[in-house]
Design a protein around this nucleic acid. Structure first.
Length: 864
RNA sequence: GCACCAGUGCCUUAAUCGGUGAAAGGGCCGGCCUUAAAAGCCGGAGAUCCGGGUUCGAGCCCCGGCUGGUGCACCA
C-alpha cells in the first residue's frame, strides 16, 4: 500500500500560495449603476447578491490567542458558505490598534507603542494567513494610521457640529492606576475593567457624546435586527427605560415668598399619597445651601464629605445599612399638601432621575429600610389583594416580617387605600394615569420617561489614542480644527507615564499652535479619544478603504452595508455594539448614510476555556494557536475548534480532542488518495460531478452498497447545508465524519465511482471548516477547485425510499418492525402492524381501543 | 435578590413536529495487523439531574425542586 501520510505542513502553504497569488478572496466595488441594477434584480440575482461577513476586528497585542482562532474560524466558514451559495462576499480585516496595553507596554519598556503595535500586527497577519482565512487583504486597515484616524476626527467634528459632542464638568469615574477617566461601561463592579483597580470619583471637565439622545431609538430598533435575544436583553437593560412621572415637591422653608420646586422622578406616582419623607443625593447642588447657617450644617457637611470620598463599591453595596441625615427642612407633597421632612442619603444617586426622590416606605424596599432605620412613618396606600387580614404571609415573611407593619413593604398591585376619597378603591394602575393627568392639569408634574443610559464619556488622559481635533484659544475659546487641516497627528513624546493629565501636554512643540479662527496663540486639546470611538465606524471604512477625500463614499456603503453577518464575543454585547449602533444612527441623521442599523445579524461565540478556567497568562494555561498549527496544521485547529461544541457556547479545550479531529482529516485524506490511485487504474470512471448535476438520470441506477453510499452522501449534503444555515458547525462536521465512516465501511463493496462521489462530497462539505485538506482531496479526486464549485445540492430521490421500516408499538412500547411501502395509507399500515409476529403475541386476548398512526414512522395500538 | 441559559455514558457534544431500541468524537476494553510498539482497520461496554403532571407515547411540553453558568443589581 501507499506509504504516503497526511502532511498539512506541505498541503497548507501550497494552497495558501494559490489563494494569495490569485487574490482569490478579493472583491472590487462595482460601479454604482451596475450595483443598482443588481439590487433591483433582487434575491434571485445569483452572483450579484452581496454578503458582508465581518468578524470583530482584533486588538493587536502580542500574538493571536485561541479566541481569535474561534472567531475567524466561525466567520470564515460563513464567508465560504455564502460564496458557494451565490453571493459576492466582502470579508475584510483590520486592527483596533490604539489602546492601553500598547501604552502600558511603552511605559514599562520605553518601546514606542507604534513599534510594538506594528510588530503585533505583523504577527497577526502572518498567523491569519497561516490559518488560511479567506480575507480580502486589499482592504486592510488599522485605526492608528493617520489615513484612518483623520476620518475618526472628522466624524468627531461632525458630531460636534450637530451638538452631539460636548464638554462639561462632571463627576466621572477615575482609574487611579491607569490615571485616566473611564466610561460607565468600563467600570465593572466598582473596578476598572482593564486593570482591576478600584475606581474613584473625580470632578473633571471632559468630552461626552450625547448617546442619550438616541436612547429611545437604540431601544426601539433592537426589534428590527436579527441578534441573539440575550444580547438584545442586555442592551435593553443597559438603556434601562422607565416610564413614570416627574413630580414637583415645593420647599418654602428658605424663603416663603420665593419657594423652590424640587422635581423627583418616580415610576410609581400611584403611591404619592404614601410619601412620608424626601431624600436628596449627597451630590445634589442644593443640599449644602439648604442647611447653610443652621444647626444641621456641620452634620450634613460631614455626611456629604464622607459619602463623596467613599469608593463606589462601598457606597453601591445594596446590603449596607441605609445611612443619611436630616436636613431640618420640609417639602410639600403636591397631592395632599402634607409637609414631609427632607434628608440627604447616599442611596440616592445624582446621575439617575433628578438626584432627589420622594420616599414611599410602605411600597419601596429601600425607602422602607431607611424609614425603619430612622424611625420615620410608614404608610400603606395600596392594598395587597392576596393578603388575609390577621393572617401571616404564607411561608416567607412569617418570621422576619415586622409586626408593626404587616405585609410591608408591598411592591405589587392592588386598590388604593388611605389616599384620597377620589382614588381610594381604584386599582393602582388606573389611579396612576389619573394621578399623572391631575398633576399635569395642576402644573405640579407630568408624565416622564427616564433612562439608565448615560452620555458616553470619550476623553482619555492617555497618549496612545486618536487626538481630539480641538484648539483652545484665549480669545475665541474652543475652536474645532478645520476639516482641511486634519488629521491632527499624534506627536512623538519621550515619557508615556501618566501623571493625571495627558502625556501629550508635555509635547510643547505640538501643544502650542495658532488659533484657526483668529491666528492668535492657542493650545491643542491634549486628551485623546476612547478607543471605542475608533471601532465605532471601521466596518464602514472597509467599504471604501482607500478614499482620501472622505471617510467613505456613500455609494460604496450602499453596495455593502449593512453588515449581513457580524461575529464576535459576547463581551462586546453592550459597549462596542451599542456605540457602533449610535454612530450609525447619528451619521444617518447627518445625511451620510441611509441605513439605521450597522449589523443586520449578529452571532456571538462562546469562550474557549482550559480545564474549565479562562485561559490567561497568569494561570499559565494558554493554548497558543500557532503551536497547534505547527503540530497538527491549521485545518485540524480550525475544524477542532468548531467541532468542540455549539459555537455560541463556552467550550473546554482538550488536547485529545485535537488528536481525534486530526485523525479524521487524516483518514479522509488517506482514503481519498487510495481511491484516486484506484481511479488511475480505471481511467474510464466517470468524473464524479454528480453532486452538482441536476437531478436527471444517473449513469445507472445504483443498488446495494452503492445505493447505501449515495444515500449517506446526499443525507450529509442535506444535513450540513441545514446545519450551516443555523451555525451548527459541530453537527455539520459530525455528519461528514459519519459519511466518511460509511465510505470506509463500504470501500470494498461499493464502486470506485460511488466512493469518489461520496468522498468528493465530503471534501466539498468540509471546505468551509478545513479548506486546505478539502481543496487537496477535491483536487485529487476531480481535478477541480472546490471553492469554484457551487454548494452541493442533495438529490431528493436519495433522501426518500420506496419503503421504510415501520415501527409497531403496543401501548407505546416497541414490539416489532416491518417494512412498509412509502405510499401506504393508514389502514394499510394498521394491517401491517397487526400482522407483525411480535405484535400478535402482545395483542393476544386483548381488545384494541385505539390506533395511532404516524405515517412514515409508526403505528401504536392501545389495548386493554 | 431579579432575569436569561444549561443539566444526556468517564469527558465534550447530537437527537427537526413529542414518535424505533438515544447518535458522533475522545477516553477505556477486546480482536486483527506487527518480532514488538505506534499508526491503521474491526468490534465492545457505557447515559437522558430529582419529583410531579399532560399524553396512546416525554430527553423534548407544563409545574416544583436541586446544581452550574451568564448578565443586571440601592436606577426610585
Amino acid at each position: 500500500m501507499s506509504e504516503k501520510r497526511y502532511d498539512p505542513s506541505e498541503i497548507e502553504p501550497r494552497w495558501q500560495r494559490v489563494w494569495a497569488t490569485e487574490r482569490t478572496w478579493e472583491v472590487v466595488n462595482e460601479d454604482p449603476a451596475r450595483a443598482a441594477r443588481a439590487r433591483g434584480a433582487g434575491e434571485q440575482g445569483g452572483r450579484d447578491v452581496k454578503s458582508y461577513v465581518l468578524e470583530m476586528l482584533p486588538y493587536p497585542s502580542g500574538e493571536p490567542h485561541i479566541g481569535h482562532l474561534k472567531t475567524y474560524s466561525v466567520g470564515d466558514a460563513i464567508a465560504h458558505f455564502h460564496r458557494r451559495t451565490g453571493h459576492r462576499v466582502l470579508h475584510p480585516m483590520g486592527y483596533d490598534a490604539f489602546g492601553l496595553p500598547a501604552e502600558n507596554h511603552a511605559i514599562r519598556t520605553g518601546e514606542h507603542p507604534r513599534d510594538s503595535t506594528a510588530a503585533s500586527i505583523a504577527s497577526f497577519q502572518r498567523q491569519f494567513r497561516s490559518w488560511g482565512i479567506s480575507i480580502d487583504w486589499s482592504r486592510e486597515l488599522a485605526t492608528h494610521e493617520p489615513t484612518y484616524y483623520r476620518w475618526t476626527q472628522w466624524i468627531f467634528l461632525e458630531l460636534l457640529r450637530a451638538g452631539l459632542a460636548y464638554r462639561k464638568e462632571a463627576a466621572v469615574k477615575w482609574c487611579p492606576n491607569d490615571q485616566t477617566v473611564l466610561a460607565n461601561e468600563q467600570v465593572v463592579e466598582g473596578h476598572c475593567e482593564r486593570c482591576g483597580a478600584e475606581v474613584e470619583v473625580r470632578q473633571l471637565t471632559q468630552w461626552f457624546l450625547r448617546i442619550t439622545d438616541y436612547a429611545e431609538r437604540l431601544l426601539r430598533d433592537l426589534d428590527t435586527i436579527d441578534w441573539p435575544e440575550n444580547v438584545k436583553t442586555m442592551q435593553r437593560n443597559w438603556i434601562g427605560r422607565s416610564e413614570g412621572a416627574e413630580v414637583n415637591f415645593r420647599c418654602e422653608d428658605l424663603d416663603p415668598a420665593h419657594p423652590v420646586d424640587y422635581p423627583v422622578f418616580t415610576t410609581r406616582p400611584d403611591t404619592l399619597f404614601g410619601a412620608t419623607f424626601f431624600v436628596m443625593a449627597p451630590e445634589h447642588p442644593d443640599v449644602l445651601r439648604l442647611v447653610e447657617g443652621t444647626d444641621r450644617e456641620a452634620e450634613v457637611r460631614e455626611y456629604v464629605n464622607r459619602a463623596l470620598t467613599e469608593s463606589n463599591e462601598q457606597r453601591g453595596d445594596a446590603e449596607k445599612p441605609k445611612t443619611g441625615v436630616p436636613l431640618g427642612r420640609t417639602v410639600i407633597n403636591p397631592v395632599n399638601g402634607e409637609r414631609i421632612p427632607m434628608y440627604v442619603a447616599d442611596y440616592v444617586l445624582m446621575e439617575y432621575g433628578t438626584g432627589a426622590i420622594m420616599a414611599v416606605p410602605g411600597h419601596d424596599e429601600r425607602d422602607y429600610d431607611f424609614a425603619v432605620a430612622h424611625g420615620l412613618p410608614i404608610k400603606r396606600v395600596i392594598e395587597d389583594p392576596t393578603r388575609r387580614p390577621g393572617n401571616r404571609a404564607p411561608e416567607d415573611g412569617g418570621d422576619d416580617e415586622d409586626p408593626a407593619h404587616p405585609g410591608l413593604p408591598y411592591t405589587g398591585d392592588g386598590p388604593l387605600v388611605n389616599s384620597h376619597p377620589e382614588f381610594d378603591g381604584t386599582h393602582n394602575r388606573t389611579a396612576l394615569s389619573e394621578i399623572v393627568a391631575w398633576l399635569d392639569r395642576e402644573g405640579k408634574g407630568h408624565a416622564s420617561v427616564n433612562y439608565r443610559l448615560r452620555d458616553w464619556l470619550i476623553s482619555r488622559q492617555r497618549y496612545w489614542g486618536c487626538p481630539i481635533p480641538i484648539v483652545h484659544c484665549d480669545s475665541c475659546g474652543m475652536v474645532p480644527v478645520p476639516d482641511d487641516q486634519l488629521p491632527v497627528q499624534l506627536p512623538d513624546v519621550e515619557d508615556y507615564a501618566p501623571k493625571g493629565r495627558s502625556p501629550l501636554a508635555a509635547a510643547e512643540d505640538w501643544l502650542s499652535t495658532t488659533c484657526p479662527s483668529c491666528d492668535g496663540p492657542a493650545r491643542r486639546e491634549t486628551d485623546t479619544m476612547d478607543t471605542f470611538v475608533d471601532s465605532s465606524w471601521y466596518f464602514m471604512r472597509y467599504c471604501d478603504p482607500h478614499n482620501d477625500q472622505a471617510a467613505f463614499d456613500p455609494a460604496a456603503l450602499r453596495q455593502w452595508m449593512p453588515v449581513d453577518q457580524y461575529i464576535g464575543g459576547i463581551e462586546h454585547a453592550i459597549l462596542h455594539l451599542m456605540y457602533a449602533r449610535f454612530f450609525t444612527k447619528a451619521l444617518a441623521d447627518l445625511g451620510h448614510l441611509d441605513f439605521q442599523e450597522p449589523f443586520k445579524a449578529l452571532f456571538t461565540q462562546g469562550m474557549i476555556t482550559k480545564d474549565g478556567a479562562k485561559m490567561s497568562k497568569s494561570k499559565g494555561n494558554v493554548v497558543p494557536p500557532a503551536a497547534i498549527v505547527e503540530s497538527h496544521g491549521a485545518d485540524t485547529a480550525r475544524a477542532y475548534i468548531l467541532f468542540i461544541g455549539p459555537p455560541d457556547q463556552d467550550a473546554d479545550w482538550s488536547d485529545e480532542g485535537v488528536e481525534g479531529v486530526h485523525r479524521f482529516l487524516s483518514r479522509l485524506w488517506r482514503l481519498a488518495s487510495e481511491v484516486a490511485d484506484r481511479g488511475k487504474e480505471a481511467p474510464h470512471a466517470a468524473p464524479p460531478q454528480a453532486a452538482h448535476a441536476r437531478p436527471g438520470q444517473p449513469a445507472h441506477a445504483p443498488a446495494g452498497p452503492d445505493l447505501e453510499l449515495m444515500r449517506k452522501a446526499h443525507w450529509a449534503i442535506e444535513k450540513v447545508s441545514g446545519d450551516l444555515r443555523r451555525f451548527a458547525f459541530n453537527t455539520a462536521i459530525a455528519a461528514v465524519m459519519e459519511l466518511l465512516n460509511e465510505c470506509y465501511r463500504l470501500r470494498e463493496s461499493a464502486s470506485a465511482e460511488s466512493e469518489r462521489f461520496a468522498l468528493s462530497s465530503a471534501a466539498s462539505l468540509l471546505f468551509p471548516f478545513a479548506p486546505h485538506v478539502s481543496a487537496e482531496v477535491y483536487d485529487m479526486l476531480t481535478g477541480e477547485r472546490v471553492w469554484e464549485q457551487p454548494w452541493p445540492q442533495a438529490d431528493t430521490r436519495y433522501l426518500e425510499s420506496e419503503s421504510y421500516e415501520l415501527v409497531c408499538q403496543v401501548n407505546g412500547k416497541l414490539r416489532d418492525r416491518v417494512q412498509a411501502p412509502s405510499e401506504a395509507g393508514e389502514q394499510e399500515l394498521i394491517e401491517l402492524c397487526r400482522k407483525a409476529p411480535n405484535v400478535i403475541a402482545h395483542l393476544d386476548g386483548k381488545q384494541v381501543v385505539k390506533e395511532i398512526v404516524v405515517p412514515g414512522k409508526l403505528v401504536n395500538l392501545v389495548v386493554r
